[in-house]
Design a protein around this nucleic acid. Sequence first.
DNA 1: AAGCAATAG
DNA 2: GGTTCTATTGCTT
Length: 685
Amino acid sequence: MNLSERDDSDGEVEEDESEWKTCFGDSAAVRPATAAAASGPVIKSPESTHRVILHFDLDCFYAQVEMIRNPELRDVPLGVQQKYIIVTCNYVARERGVTKLMSVTGAKEKCPELVLVKGEDLTHYREMSYKVTDLLLSYCPLVERLGFDENFVDVTEMVEQRLAGMSETDSLSFKGNVFNHSSADANASHHPRLAIGSHIAAEMRDAIRSKIGLTGCAGIATNKLLAKLVSGTFKPNQQTVLLQENVGDIMGCLSGLRKVPGLGHQTAKRLQALGLVSVKDLQLCPLGDLARELGGTTAQRLRNLALGIDESAVTPTGAPQSLSDEDSFKKMCSVKEVMAKIRELLGSLVERMHKDGRQPQTFRLTIRRFSATNKWLSRESRQAPIPGAVGQKIISGNIEDGVSQLVPLAVKLFHKMVDCSAAFHLTLINVCFSNLQSRAPPASGKGAITSFFTQSASPRKSQTSSVQSQNNSAQNADSCLLDHQISECSRNVPPKGQMTCKSEQPEETSEASCSTGGINSDKTKPPPQVDPEVFRLLPEEIQKELLSPYYLNSLQSHMSKNDSSMKADKSRMNHQQPAGIPVIHEENVMEQGNLSLPQSSDCNFPGNVDPEVFSELPPDVQKELMSEWKQQNPVLKTPSSRKTGKGSLSKGKDRKAEGRSSQSNNLLKYFKPGSTKQHDGGLGL
DNA sequence: AAGCAATAG
DNA sequence: GGTTCTATTGCTT
């Protein structure tokens, strides 16, 4: 867990603007899949600056969780320890010089009174983490997790609804900080969407605090990159808006290439080999040079990142695609020890798997061998299918049996990697379940569709259950306007670089009292949990299926499930279009591309890609896209390999979502009674 | 489908 | 960049 500081050294303030011609965005945004809405209109716009993206980042997450579990830790310097490392610490400890990723001995030297809590077991953190995600999901379906303590939320649709319901934009204001502006300076009526976004962010942060008890930062901007960058500019427990006119500033403030999210140290090294060390270097580097070194699409993507351009979608994360447990140690060199460790790890993994409810199809064992050089690198793994019977055992709750049956499999894999007739020295073992399948619906016939809906019922029971009470009360957040000081971590920490940011003072959070639980918010619709709009669009047989007692039952027992990917699609249509040509029709964008869901016929050449746009792409990019598109089709196959003609429900979806729905892995396929509508009801329409 | 690299917190 | 314990995606075979 790494709630890293962003030390913004100062940098040249660079012009942003222009350069639009280069902005082909993230390649992901161009994929037929992501471009969503197969039948939607192609909007030619350099970047979707009308989007409103939120990034949430909890303050020293592990430490906060521990302080909730034991309130006596609130005011003492607290460090969370994994092995011999302080992975994070609270702000009291930070004041005394403790930093993240410091060795325990080093931290004790700095701060002898430091209280340590063991944090190797992630269970509690994971649970809290999902509570936050689920709470955000109760507002809006487009929530993407990034690690345990960060979430992106695409609130474009919510913003549009509120905007449409407003008579005058004069009364608008920004909540929280505005990057590089004083409050007097920033005119909210010039940036109505971001202004509304800042209010939504404030409401969500307040809900997270009042319902869950966690504080954190938020960034409000027009894409994920910028939202993430700006969310860290005022810490802790504050939020910041980034205006388009300041994109150049914030990118210029980054102290090095590594500060660009998505640019890791390997690519930073390769770029350094080209003589590029600063963000500005990357911005100015001729695309050809970059492309030669990294390939066309990567070159374009990196360059766009350096410019603050990022068309990548907020992709709903859903239930995890794999569950793993691991342990590291100084030395393990006997088979006996290895077996014991594998058993131990499998025990907790199987239990987690059981709670999840899905059935794993493949098992993987990973080891790390000791080696003086490159000690941390070098993980090796072997994986194998899990026999169906074993998988059944796991989910049926027979944990002991499940473990016992997996051990031989693990041992087999172990011997594929380690020759036990020779000496060995391991420093880590990891066990992992992946290819997680939801229970196959007993129904025959339209298997794919059925599972598309029913699978949602089971996953993530454990994590989600806690939110059930929150669903109802969440809509309340809108009307919650009572502010009150709580100040816990209320120091205002301005960015180190020079930014004349005006802040709301130590940001206060609105206090409880507004969280009177949701009374009765249940809407009863044709099928109670289904967005009526979406429902209307479905083919009749699917409508019938949704109304079947089987499905309704499964839904009703899982009211906490929200979000439909179809709903997600609808909103995606509005803002995720292939980019490419510098023509801006921002005002029109939102009207178009509604409700095209079921149309998407079977044309496999992406109907959503404008041939004109395509033809203007660099040849190598064209080639890459073509080959990607070719690979789309096989992905459609369900485990039973049928293409399910009417299964074209998922046609316009992005590849990730596609894979997920058909491979059945996760959650996120369920309906919740108009989540956004409920929230917007108050102020929106 | 398998294994690994890169990226992330 | 290096600690830990995860998790995801994309490349290569």
